[in-house]
Design a protein around this nucleic acid. Structure first.
Lengths: 334, 334
DNA sequence: TGCTAAACTGAAAGTGCTTTCATTTTTACT
DNA sequence: AGTAAAAATGAAAGCACTTTCAGTTTAGCA
């Protein structure tokens, strides 16, 4: 016979035939109640396995071992890999990992305004999401240790990536390989609540092309809503141009995958006829031999929790700003 | 101006000229209140330094609004996709998502014995992990609603996958395509704490081969520790056989990816010289045009939370056992 | 035995917050 | 413009206890 619900003080009252007030008293001011009554009450309490739940919860959860991660709803593999990094770093500590996924501006605002108050977290990791002054201030005011990944705030811990530099690296690599007709595909600014690394990568690309004195026709830069279909269409258009590019720099590996798929579909040989370079170095990149800019996704998550834990242990530490290095991983597509 | 007691929600209401209900809402369901109102409220909260009393909150709150997911440490994409399903289904409800990752037998035992007592969850999803009689009983006794994914227990909600049948489908498909020399690659039983769907898939494969009267030499079945390197080596060995198979059934897409990579490396044309079929239908499968058995990963997660929520709402419901359908997704590798 | 003070007890009124429900306001669509 | 549908909001009814207050008992004592 399994118990149904958690017993309340009322159940105890009923079972012992004594009013709830008295029960409450034996729990809080036992010396004020008749020992016999007290014994009866205690007996009933034991038999029912009653535990004042509200307090228990308040106590149990207060300042307890919880760390939260707020991240865009994980569609993109890169978010997942960052998350994997935090999970792995947290595995040995005995912190609980609470995930908040964001899928709209409203939701992120909601989290930012309620988390400091109600979800008592020991620390928070904000991933790939912009955070506004006053929201950040609230976290600071409420003493919640926070680390920002892929975004920066002067008074908070940050882990940044130099997307511009990454764009430069990728482009320069292609140029060094002798390419002159280089195109760019990437996602256009998607939602109001998301950061947009692709634009910095694009800047790095353009800048490098300019410095190298290379021509960059408008048709060689395609931005689109980030879906596989759109990415493929953009690539198809590009490869059907009178003078198609000999290399494509995709703002993210996931888009590079679409480029590769189209190349296969159109019988374009990679890398002979078309070089492809991506950005991120997601897991699949390795399976596809995709040349790409590695941004140490797992590592960023791991580092975030390390910084967080260190600051929880000693809140007086000054905020830490780290810039993760980028590496060009040469594989077979470029 | 004089500093008094701790401000309550009523003070905030008075100062902002907004009802306590709305104040409460901005704290708990921020997305349901008008951004302007929210800003006003937050402003007042900040100015007053209001902090909701945890115990009062616990008192008024019925459940804990937390649902937990316990899952193998997410190395494999399939775990991630299941998780994505639960996150997406949970996004609209406002339950907090707590993740427990398992990387050893000890850890899983730790979770199973402590979760019922200390982490007050409204519900738990156990993913791709076996659970023993007495552990299950503990959850049952403590009235924690639970749903098992990829495992089964008579008294608990379960979402099962017919791996055997999937093995049959994949194999039959290859046979129908005219293949006679079909090989199998898969991971061997890895840890004591993990379930092992590959073995059921292998059984389905063997059974189907037998029924079709096809010869299955020992070298055509390769099991290995699940790493990319081992998978690739196994494939290389197989393709170097005097009579290499004309088709390979990989127990999981992630392994099929390795097969594909080796085929590329060795210049073996897919599907002309070698057909490849996988299992799972992970995201990358689509990008690689991998023919595979889809097991509705995202859906399994979504369904798990739906069942869980329904049972939390009405605990008297009898446990539900659902078997998710499998579909053969025909793409270009077989 | 009668009377009063001390000891005990239960009904009911908080406690600070959440949530339901009905009402108003906005928006969307003929 | 006119209406249906959706969103936002406040009043009020909980939630699971604690505390107050007004009785009852009981004990002590003449």
């Amino acid at each position: 016979m399994a118990k149904k619900k958690k017993p309340t003080i009322y159940d105890v009252a009923e079972r012992s035939g004594i009013s709830i007030s008295t029960i409450s008293r034996v729990l809080n001011n036992p010396e004020k109640v008749n020992p016999e009554t007290r014994a009866t009450v205690l007996d009933a309490i034991d038999k029912l396995g009653f535990v004042p739940k509200a307090e228990a919860r308040a106590r149990a959860l207060s300042g307890s071992n919880r760390i939260g991660v707020i991240t865009p709803f994980f569609t993109a593999p890169s978010f997942v890999q960052r998350l994997r990094g935090v999970a792995s770093a947290l595995a040995t500590s005995n912190y609980e990992l609470v995930i908040y996924t964001v899928d709209s501006y409203d939701r992120i605002q909601g989290y930012f305004s309620s988390i400091p108050f109600v979800s008592n977290l020991d620390g928070l990791i904000v991933m790939s999401l912009p955070i506004q002054k006053q929201d950040a201030q609230r976290f600071l005011d409420h003493g919640i240790e926070t680390v920002l990944v892929e975004y920066s705030h002067p008074e908070m811990n940050c882990i940044e990536i130099d997307d511009f530099q990454g764009g430069v690296m990728a482009t320069q690599y292609l140029i060094d390989k002798g390419h002159r007709c280089i195109a760019f595909v990437g996602d256009k600014e998607p939602h109001d609540f998301e950061i947009h690394p692709a634009s910095a990568r694009l800047k790095g690309f353009k800048e490098t092309m300019r410095k190298a004195g290379l021509d960059l026709p408008d048709e060689y830069v395609r931005l689109f809503v980030n879906t596989q279909e759109r990415a493929m269409q953009a690539t198809r258009d590009m490869l059907s141009l009178p003078t198609p590019p000999t290399a494509i720099f995709a703002a993210a590996d996931i888009q590079a995958l679409s480029v590769l798929k189209v190349a296969r579909e159109m019988g374009v040989k990679v890398p002979e006829q078309l070089a492809v370079i991506g950005f991120d170095d997601i897991d699949s990149a390795e399976y596809l031999d995709l040349t790409t800019i590695r941004q140490h996704l797992d590592e960023s998550g791991k580092l975030a929790v390390e910084i967080l834990l260190a600051h929880i242990a000693d809140p007086s530490r000054p905020p830490q700003h780290v810039r993760l290095p980028l590496n060009l991983i040469e594989r077979k597509t470029a």
